[in-house]
């Protein structure tokens, strides 16, 4: 019996060690979120466009606001407090040609302004998040206009967190495209990858 307990203990220790989340410094944490292989920054190409979805935990957003390596836990918590209640993503749409999104494949100047109007005011209605079995409308939307300074066009998105919150659920962003000609676009962030996010280790607590 004692031998069995010892064997179980021997097997359990490495398992527990491997399951324990590692601690990362602010810089490492930001890099971890951005690193494609960690599954929180997922891209998909359709036709002339690349769609990239970034899942942004509260800590990531707070760190990106200040970019201060020496931020304390108290300062971080203060920054996080108003963010709570929503889950945040950035959808980046990049054109293959490197042109501004509004200009890609248009034939008349009026189309440019139609697209701009759509991106600024109406695209929000065509975005939703499938969180487990819940389909959530986009409640926070901001189109970052880049004035043709680069190929990336960022959409900052926020969705409610369902009442029966379960962090292990896959999250699929759905874009019912109306102007780009790609049709419905879906990008999924796996629940397992969200669960695997390491702990943030701050220099000063």
């Amino acid at each position: 019996m004692r031998l069995v307990v010892q064997i179980v203990a021997l097997l359990a220790v490495p398992l527990m060690i491997s399951c324990a989340k590692e601690n990362l410094s602010p810089k490492q944490y930001v890099n971890y979120i951005r690193e494609e292989t960690n599954g929180l920054n997922v891209s998909k190409q359709v036709g002339d466009y690349e769609f990239r979805l970034l899942y942004k935990p509260y800590e990531y957003i707070a760190l990106m606001q200040d970019k201060d390596e020496n931020i304390s836990r108290q300062q971080l918590d203060q920054k996080i407090k108003p963010m709570k209640g929503l889950q945040y993503f950035t959808l980046t749409i990049r054109t293959k040609s490197g042109q501004e999104l509004m200009r890609e494949g248009i034939s008349e100047e009026t189309e440019y302004y139609d697209r701009l109007d759509y991106l600024v005011s109406y695209m929000q209605n065509d975005l939703s998040l499938i969180d487990g079995n819940d389909t959530l409308p986009c409640v926070l939307y901001h189109f970052e206009r880049n004035y043709n300074t680069g190929p990336d066009n960022n959409l900052l998105l926020g969705f409610d967190i369902p009442a029966n919150k379960n962090t292990g659920r896959d999250k699929t962003l759905v874009l019912e495209d109306q102007v780009l000609g790609t049709g419905k676009i879906m990008i999924r962030i796996a629940g397992n990858d969200i669960n695997r996010i390491p702990q943030l280790q701050l220099l000063s607590q």
């Binding site: 997922v42 891209s43 998909k44 699929t172 879906m186 990008i187 999924r188």
Partner: peptide, 9 residues
């Protein structure tokens, strides 16, 4: 699977 959002992975 890609259409449903796996991102080609």
């Amino acid at each position: 699977e890609s259409y449903k959002g796996s991102g080609g992975k």
